[in-house]
Amino acid sequence: MTARKLLIHAIFLALLIAVMECAILWALVIAPADREQGDVQRIFYFHLGSIWPAFLAFFYVLYGSIAYLVTRKQIFDHRAFVAGQVGLAFGSLVLITGPIWAKPTWGIWWTWDARLTSMLVLWLIFLGYVMLRDYIDDATKRERLSAILGIAGGVMVPFVYLSTRWFETQHPSPVIMGDKESGIKDPQMVNALLLALAAFSLLAIYFWRRGIELVHSDARLQALRRRTLDLEENV
């Protein structure tokens, strides 16, 4: 890693830590407790904060997969694959924080509400995308087939989002792009939400960049290993 890259990395990490600290402070201390739900509602900042990067990552899988099939540049495949992993990790956070919030609010851990179901379905789709690679032995096909599945899965994201508006739901209306009744009115709550969104987005970008470096290094290592084996055979 060059000195410039190292500096950018350090600045990014410092910014990430600062924003995360602020997000925790606002979410747990400064923002007032919800009038009806009390302190339980504070998990909302982490819940919604995780949804945003998960959806963004899933869209990136679609973009990266299309870019790979068009250009055949390996970097797009690496970026799309790591985006799938990051999306899966944040999707898992959504699925964990959701029931923790649901139990005291609705009285049940899980309900087959459309939005919960759709998040679970998206999570399963991208689990399949991430899993697929491990089961393809032919390395020449791995990236291409992954990209095709990435497109098939990524295209599903809008349908899943549409379904949240169409199905009967007991989930609250979306805070962002919801109807007039929905949304947060308290300015400190809005700040806490924006900080949480920024913190989780930066965290996702950090994981994504580190993941790409890892996958890239792994691909170089595999190539070197193949070359060494070839050389050994020739000697």
């Binding site: 899993m131 089961y135 599945l149 599903m156 899943v160």
Partner: peptide, 13 residues
């Protein structure tokens, strides 16, 4: 095994 695992979530809509 992989075909149903990958396909069925995509068929949910």
């Amino acid at each position: 095994i992989l075909f149903p695992i990958i396909q069925l979530p995509l068929q949910v809509p």
